[in-house]
Design a protein around this nucleic acid. Structure first.
Lengths: 209, 209
DNA sequence: TGTACATCAGTGAACGCGCGTTCACTGATGTAC
DNA sequence: TGTACATCAGTGAACGCGCGTTCACTGATGTAC
């Protein structure tokens, strides 16, 4: 009994030290989701581990946040790619893509904010961690490429009047990002039903229905 | 000489103690703009004042942030109202309105994030400071009302095909919010020229040009 | 006109706390001989 | 098969620091008599 009543953590067996890494990330995600302050010590506490143990896996708290964002970018890209695969028509697929984006953002709003919330200013991050900033940019562009492709597909199928898919995909990205953010920030606002489809259809210039 | 080389602060004359309140807010705005940590002591330092002096004007740091947001909401509403007054046609006025929103957000992104960035979760804030949360909601709705009105004006003038101005104004709000946020967060992204007008025209369903 | 006093704006020192970081360590477990 | 040793996963105590908050205070200035 250590006095706190919490479960005694079992030390990981020999080859599996990396397991704690995952537990640290889970703990950080929990704190983020609960709006609790994220400090090295709070993460360690939540993970049920002494503070110095964090250093075996991360140089500092920022590295934990970066790892969280990395995972989240991968998950977002994955979700979007799967959404693009479903649906029978181009416009259905584009709408599914947009909704998947919104769902993924809503699933863990705090993590989404970490990715796109300008918590770490892009320009500043480029100075401090150029490789990290570049990786995020690449992952962001991959996701954006899926949007452009989906709009182009709709144009090709005669379901969008877009004359500049890249431009309209950028507008769509802004619309999705704004909707994702405002739905959290202005949760008391009475959002019209189907506002997500309204935004997607308008910005992608879909014609059907 | 106090050793730091900074200007010696002149104490305010008798009736003007409230002056420091403004200086504290300015200091907080500066720190926010620079991305510096905002603590009671850092604000006091920036204002050139001893830490306890803050208490004469604010009970805690959150109250300073709330005052900042209050001012910013007032400024936003003001800017939007003035934008609505200019322009000769309804659609010109709506576009001016949208651009004014974006300009105001870009002027002090950190303050804008304070207003709409879900830094303080609306639902939680409602528990802790009901009157503050309610005031923000009212001010947000005032600003939103201007958007709805501008879309309605365009419909009346035959310049928008919107059949549901409230819905389309909500979509427009999301688009503006997203554009404002992403332009800061993804500043390295190559945003197409005139993306702001593209978003406004699409979401407000403007017909002209 | 002079003076005692109240008020006002702001201070300096002190406190306890949680933080990040360091250090030498512990003790279980796999490995070499 | 037994045993010494290296490695690995994680710890506990300690440090200096900046934080929020309290307290009794200072000293200038307006006000009452």
């Amino acid at each position: 009994m250590t006095g706190t009543g919490e479960h005694e953590r079992q030390r990981n067996p020999r080859g599996e030290g990396a397991r704690l890494r995952g537990e640290i990330l889970d703990a950080a995600r929990e704190l983020l989701a609960e709006g609790e302050p994220m400090t090295l010590r709070s993460v360690a506490r939540r993970a049920g581990v002494a503070a110095p143990s964090i250093y075996r896996h991360f140089p500092d708290v920022d590295a934990i946040m970066a790892a969280l964002a990395d995972d989240a970018f991968a998950a977002l890209t994955d979700v979007l790619e799967r959404a693009r695969a479903g649906g029978s028509t181009a416009d259905e697929r584009l709408i599914a893509l947009g909704r998947a984006y919104l769902d993924e953002a809503a699933r863990e709003p705090a993590v989404y904010r970490l990715m796109f919330g300008a918590q770490w200013d892009a320009a500043a991050a480029l100075d401090v961690h150029p490789e990290r900033a570049e990786r995020f940019q690449v992952m962001g562009m991959n996701a954006f490429g899926l949007l452009v492709g989906a709009v182009e597909d709709c144009v090709r199928a005669g379901q969008s009047t877009s004359s500049d898919p890249r431009r309209d995909a950028a507008a769509l990205w802004a619309g999705l990002h704004g909707l994702a953010g405002l739905r959290v920030a202005a949760s008391l606002f009475d959002w019209p039903d189907g506002i997500d489809v309204t935004v997607i259809r308008s910005l992608a210039r879909l014609t059907s229905r």
